[in-house]
Design a protein around this nucleic acid. Sequence first.
DNA 1: CATGAATGAGTCTTCATTCAT
DNA 2: TATGAATGAAGACTCATTCAT
Lengths: 210, 210, 210, 210
Amino acid sequence: MDDQHDGRKERATRRRSHRRTEILTASRKVFSDKGYHASSVADIIAEARIARGTFYLYFPSKRALFEELLEEMIAQIAGAVHRISTDGGVDSALDQLSGIVRRVIDILETNRHLTIILLREAVGLDADFDLKLNAFYSRMSDLIDGALTLGQSMGLVRDCDTRLASYCVLGSLKEVMLQRLTGAGHEVDAGELARGILDFNLRGLLKPTP
Amino acid sequence: MDDQHDGRKERATRRRSHRRTEILTASRKVFSDKGYHASSVADIIAEARIARGTFYLYFPSKRALFEELLEEMIAQIAGAVHRISTDGGVDSALDQLSGIVRRVIDILETNRHLTIILLREAVGLDADFDLKLNAFYSRMSDLIDGALTLGQSMGLVRDCDTRLASYCVLGSLKEVMLQRLTGAGHEVDAGELARGILDFNLRGLLKPTP
Amino acid sequence: MDDQHDGRKERATRRRSHRRTEILTASRKVFSDKGYHASSVADIIAEARIARGTFYLYFPSKRALFEELLEEMIAQIAGAVHRISTDGGVDSALDQLSGIVRRVIDILETNRHLTIILLREAVGLDADFDLKLNAFYSRMSDLIDGALTLGQSMGLVRDCDTRLASYCVLGSLKEVMLQRLTGAGHEVDAGELARGILDFNLRGLLKPTP
Amino acid sequence: MDDQHDGRKERATRRRSHRRTEILTASRKVFSDKGYHASSVADIIAEARIARGTFYLYFPSKRALFEELLEEMIAQIAGAVHRISTDGGVDSALDQLSGIVRRVIDILETNRHLTIILLREAVGLDADFDLKLNAFYSRMSDLIDGALTLGQSMGLVRDCDTRLASYCVLGSLKEVMLQRLTGAGHEVDAGELARGILDFNLRGLLKPTP
DNA sequence: CATGAATGAGTCTTCATTCAT
DNA sequence: TATGAATGAAGACTCATTCAT
């Protein structure tokens, strides 16, 4: 009887979790199509084909749902980016870097809707929200900054303002991805794109003077 | 008597235009503090210390006011950026580039509020608006793209995907300025900042291998 | 379980339709008391004892509600008036006429509020509205005109400008009903009233000269 | 010096009165074009080509202006309608009646704008206003009623409910004029129209049975 | 759990009227 | 007198959230 009960409970939990996921998926689509402000709860429940009340059974508010959506994405990206190990020498370091960029691009690509939100809409809700976003971007640029400083100590990265440079790197990645995701088609292969971005950031625009 | 009349009229016009400016200034502040959506007309008239009706005496709607604010800024920036002339050789070209970056930074700095709005909030109001913004950013990246292509034909810029590179350049500038304007203080001198950004974009991160 | 579900749904629908009716009734009263313009949505929801939002759950706008109110009444009246059949000879024709007048009066009486609105307030909202009203009154006078022409061909109605006469008939009915409905009490019996109006229109004021 | 002063004063008064008239004329046009509610003070001052403040120099409020407009018209009509003298016998009485109808029609025609307002728009402003209108229409139907009673005592008017009949007469006149004034063109001659209306009201629709 | 009717605070916008010049 | 900028009360409508069934 306990077993049966557990089974029921489990099934119920699974169902519950399933509903949640459905709502998350629906709202992802709605939010990235129309933006946060233009998306109403009515839009979301229509997309998810549930009743108004049901929505509030799974999320305390529209804002909380949006927050969860963003945090999920932030967590994914953060998970893909980690410190570069210097144990393997220069080539290994560059390979790791390349891998990170590639992984980040992949995550952004597979979360097209969310990424667009993250890149342009997730601002201006309230101070609380902005803080969270700033914290995320700070963390990202800190990681880049750390990598650059490390690179300098390895004699790999040239002498420059690493903080400024980290913003440049972050900005170039954001802009390229925004253009790619909002633009018509993804013409270029993701690997090639990663190489291109890396290439730009590492070598700059100028032809090296012999 | 005509003189008197003219004087009156003129003064009235000046006062009128002054009020308009006051409202623009107030709304600039409000919008960049709270974002477009979180700013109500009530906030704006409170900041401008005018009555509700007065607002609509000068602007047909909240949206129209915002539009004017953005277009003003877009026009300023666009005015500061122009094609680079190749008549003066390499050094001249680089100088012109440096001048443009410097000018743009100056404009953004002196329009701190508006810039913040332009860089993050001006999205998601409606399709019409997004189109305008996209058009602006497209124009900017087109200009950069053109400059890069020109640079290539002059043997100055190395072989690369100029479109991709133009997004990178645009993105790095946007991100650096956003950090600078939203961040606590403007520690670094604007000239140095311009040099830093240019340096990053031109030479990249890597130490040149001899 | 399906039964239960159906039952619920059905009850909900009935409740829903009931609310709608309540709002219609309340607004009928408010509109005919204060007129369209002087009636605010606040008045209507106060009379109906519902919340602001509830109103817009059932009607898209104040104007749409008013439109529905009028169209309902127009439909009722139009339904009571139809062409007179000549199959039964003169007496039958006069009986039919008498029946129509009687039915119209009854409808107007049982829709006191709406009638008052129709007779005096339903004008000047916008061109669209005026067109609808004009169309209705045109239809009415066309029907009367047709009946008079028919009467002439039957040798029943004397030679006169039927168009002009149809307006006179329409006008006398409108005015009498307006006085009756806005006046203090309905002293006279409806049947007697119908006879009186008919009598006036058929025989005129003058004592027949022998 | 007194003379001069008086002259000035007089001229000023004349000018003042002239301005008033201009505003009245302008508002007459505006009101009858768009109706009371759809006409804003802005419309009126635009039509009169005066400043906002000037309007309130001559009229305390929009409503008061409208009231004056209507009262002026009411006075005119009331002035055209007076008790019928019985001194001259039957023919004279009918002639007088005919004259009244003719005069009323003429007044209404020459005040087309105002008449339209009076006939349909002048309702629903507030209770005060409605009272005034009711009083006017009551007076009109009282006059008719009186005439009918007199006619009965002269053996001219047949036995009928004179109150009811007076409403019928009033209504037929109102409706015919409304159609005429709002309709496309004034095809029929005013004299003929007067005869037609009178004919309808006096003899009714039916062909007299021999 | 699910539903959807009900709520009401909040938003933009209009416009008759006032008042300093 | 004449002007027109300024006012603010009032109105229509939206939408996130609640709650009885």
